[in-house]
Computed example of a mutant assay.
Amino acid sequence: MGFKLNFFKLVVRDLDAMVDFYTTAFGFEVQNRIRLSGLEEVMLVLPGERFNLVLYHHTDGRAVEIGDGHGPLGFITRDLDAALGHVLASGATPDKGPIDLPGMRLAFVHDPEGHELELIQIVRPSAAAEKKP
């Protein structure tokens, strides 16, 4: 069947503010915008990637509550400390971390509307550590 994951949707209260956050904090680019009766969506894509993050906004005034029915949206980075500082300066709020684990470092933050995000840096052992008996 050849399934591939193509997009993930986050329901947001303030579409323009969240587009601004994700483009500023992570470098997403707006790929498309759709307006239909009762909803508006903005498709975001990272440069060179095909996977889309879709920000979905109800335009009929209904309330949006952030639930706990899913885990965090995960991002890989080469430099966790720099990435964490950047997303916090862009409007995210800290949650947990940085946490050092075997082979990785990670931190959890929340976007301006409360969606949980996970930042992960893959850490390879240094040459000195590899030579230890």
Rank of each mutant, 00 (worst) to 15 (best):
E65G: 06
E130A: 15
H86N: 10
V123R: 13
L44V: 05
F8P: 01
E49Y: 02
V11K: 09
M104Q: 12
L117G: 04
L53T: 08
H70Q: 13
G114I: 07
F51M: 10
L88F: 02
D95S: 10
D100N: 10
V30G: 03
N52P: 00
M18N: 02
I122E: 14
V42A: 03
L84R: 08
K96E: 11
L46T: 07
K9G: 14
L73T: 13
F26R: 01
D81Y: 01
E118R: 04
L80P: 05
L36R: 10
R13A: 04
H70G: 13
E113G: 08
H57T: 09
E41V: 08
I76V: 15
N52V: 01
P102R: 10
L80S: 06
P125H: 00
G69R: 15
F26P: 04
V87R: 08
G103D: 07
P94N: 05
A17Q: 01
G69N: 15
H86D: 13
K132M: 10
N32A: 10
L46S: 12
F75G: 11
G85R: 15
T77L: 06
L80N: 11
L39N: 05
G38R: 07
M1N: 00
E41D: 13
G74A: 12
A63G: 06
N6L: 10
A25F: 01
P98E: 12
L36S: 11
G103P: 03
I66M: 08
V42M: 04
P125Q: 03
V30M: 04
L44S: 07
E113D: 08
G67Q: 15
E113A: 07
M104E: 11
P47N: 10
E40C: 04
A129R: 12
F21W: 01
L53P: 05
H115G: 09
T93D: 09
E118T: 08
N6I: 12
E49N: 10
H110V: 06
D14E: 15
V123C: 14
E113M: 02
G67Y: 05
R35H: 12
V42Y: 00
R62K: 14
N52D: 09
P125T: 08
M18G: 00
A17M: 00
T23G: 03
A83T: 14
L119N: 06
A107I: 08
G67S: 15
F75D: 06
E41N: 06
L36F: 01
L44G: 01
V42S: 02
T24M: 01
D68T: 09
D100F: 02
L10W: 08
M104T: 11
G48P: 04
V42D: 04
E130K: 13
G91M: 03
Y22M: 06
F51G: 12
L106F: 04
V19T: 07
Y56G: 02
N52Q: 14
Y22S: 00
E118Q: 15
G71K: 05
H110T: 14
V87A: 13
H86Q: 14
D100R: 14
F108W: 14
R33L: 03
V30C: 00
S90L: 04
A128K: 09
G103W: 03
G69P: 02
R124Q: 10
G67I: 08
D81L: 10
D20M: 00
S90Y: 00
I76A: 12
A92H: 00
A89D: 15
I122Q: 04
R35S: 15
D14T: 01
